[in-house]
Each structure stands twice: as C-alpha cells, then as structure tokens.
C-alpha cells in the first residue's frame, strides 16, 4: 500500500470530518450554553439544505444560498427558541429533548408535503466542479473548499468567543447565568442568540453537504446520529472537543475504509464506546456537568 494512497485517504477523512465538525458544533454549543439537547438538529440540517437549494435557484447563485440559508434558518431557530423552548428552561432536561424530537417529525413531514419525498438534485457550484491534481492524486475541488470554509468558520467563532465582549458574556452566561442577570445582562437574549447560532450552523452544514449528497427529507436523521457521536466523544458542550472528535471520527472512518470497508460505519460507534469506557465525560468534557 503506497504512501500517496494513505495521504489521499487522510484528506478524504479530513473533508468528511469537516462536515461532522460543523454539524456537531451547533449541537454542542446549544447543549453547553443552554442545556438543551436539540433532537431537531438533524431536521434543521436538512431544512438548511433545502433552503440553500431554494435560495440558490431563486438568486441563480450557490453563494447566495450558502450565505442566506444559515441566516434565515438561524432566524427560524430563534423563533423556535422564543416561542417553544424558552418555556421549558428550568425544567427537566427531558422536556426540551421531547419537544425538539417532536419538532423534527413536524419539520421532516412538512418538507415531504412541500417538496415531495423524492430526492432533488443540488448541483455543485460551477467554480468548484471537478478535481484538483495534487501531484499524488486527484481530489474534488468542492471538498477542499469545504475544508477551508469550515476552518474559517471555526476561526471566526473562536475569535468571537475569546476576544470580544459578546464572547465574554456568552462564556460567563454558560458558567453562571444567575450572576449574569444580577450584573444586569439580559441572559434571555444571549440564549436566544446562541440557539439561533446553533441552528444556523446546522443549516450551514446542510447547505455544504447538499452538493455532496442527494438532498431528501430523511438526510438529517443519519447526520443527527453522527453529530451526537462526535459530541459525546468530544465531551458534551465542548467546542474544542467537537472539532477534535469530528476530525478524529472522519479520519478513523477513512482509514478503516481502506482496510476493512464494511466496518467503516461501525468504527465511529466503537470509538465512542472506547472513549466512554476510559473517559465517560468525553475527551474535553467536564465531569458531572449537567449545565
């Protein structure tokens, strides 16, 4: 087995991991800050793909779809938080879980009614069609773009959280919401924004995945499972954990596919089982955290 093949395989693992990171990120941020396990995350990923496709065909450009869909669906997420989830803060963690679980069925069925249950084509943007010759092999331009874009999103997110005043409020709010309220910060608005951000990231993941997979109403269910596995491995609520675990899972799947392809899906769950045995709180999780 030559080295170039292994490098190509690593690269496809990183590209796969990039999509996992972006979807797991929204899930973990919402859990970390709000203590809400969002079971509608996969459905919102799917809604994001449909919105991106719809906006792209409306404006005639993929790039508008990529920009507007996360914003629009993020705003929709804020609406969900404001109308539904807000009422359940302070109650058992199961309540928002059940609410979002029900919501996911409504969203999937809604898309089936509006767009039909058949898959619909989501063309790759013309600038990114085809492969790039890397010297050791060919790699799809679009997947390289996905890696780059996810890296940029992560950087912006990190800088915002670590270096700005808004980031400071968010971090403080996650640690002690009561003190924040005493200090005069309207924590409700922070939570609203965070939930919107989480949903926006899910939608971004959906638009990015669109040109790589067929777009259909059930495309989110598998993604939800993957995002949960990544979140659990990385540690619930940990942003760094989601990034590390996402890439780790992507690369593991890819390398296992090289030697035992039929095991490619199972490896993700095996990895989770091992991590849970050795470090139950996940790689970067905090022990005993209930948010």
């Amino acid at each position: 087995m030559d080295l170039s093949l292994i490098i190509m395989q690593l690269l496809s693992g990183i590209a796969l991991g990039a999509v996992l990171v972006i979807t797991a990120l929204g899930l973990t941020i919402v859990f970390g800050m709000l203590g809400v396990v969002n079971f509608a995350h996969g459905a919102l990923f799917m809604i994001g793909a449909y919105a991106g496709l719809y906006l792209a065909s409306l404006t005639g450009s993929f790039w508008w779809g990529l920009l507007l869909a996360p914003i629009l669906i993020g705003a929709f997420g804020m609406l969900i938080e404001f109308v539904l989830i807000r009422r359940l803060y302070g109650r058992s963690i199961d309540d928002p879980l059940l609410l979002t679980f029900g919501l996911s069925y409504i969203l999937v069925e809604g898309v089936r009614i509006v767009f039909g249950s058949d898959g619909i084509p989501f063309p790759t943007p013309p600038q990114l069609v085809g492969v790039l010759d890397l010297g050791i092999g060919f790699f799809p331009r679009y997947r390289l773009f996905v890696i780059a874009l996810v890296a940029v999103v992560l950087l912006v997110l990190w800088l915002t959280l670590e270096k700005t005043r808004i980031g400071l409020i968010v971090r403080a709010g996650a640690r002690d919401p009561t003190i924040m309220q005493v200090l005069g910060v309207d924590i409700g608005r922070v939570w609203l924004a965070i939930f919107g951000l989480g949903v926006g990231l899910a939608a971004l993941g959906g638009v990015l995945a669109g040109p790589m997979r067929s777009v259909n109403p059930e495309m989110g269910s598998l993604v939800l499972a993957e995002a949960f596995v990544v979140t659990v491995i990385g540690g619930l609520g940990s942003i760094v954990g989601a990034v590390v675990a996402g890439l780790m899972v992507g690369i593991s799947i890819s390398l296992v596919a090289l030697f035992a392809p039929e095991m490619a899906t199972i490896v993700m769950f095996a990895l989770m089982a091992v991590v849970l045995l050795i470090r139950p709180q996940g790689l970067f999780g905090v022990r005993g955290r209930t948010a």
Binding site: Q9, M212, P261
Partner: peptide
C-alpha cells in the same frame, strides 16, 4: 469493496477504487 447499507458518504472508498 463492500459498503454499509444506507451510507451517506462514499468519499472514503474512492481513492482506493481509483488506485
């Protein structure tokens, strides 16, 4: 190459198939 039923991503099989 055998792939799991219902897989969403096939990218990891491609480099090997092409090789």
């Amino acid at each position: 190459i055998l792939h799991p039923f219902g897989a969403a991503d096939y990218s990891t099989f491609m480099p090997r198939l092409m090789s």
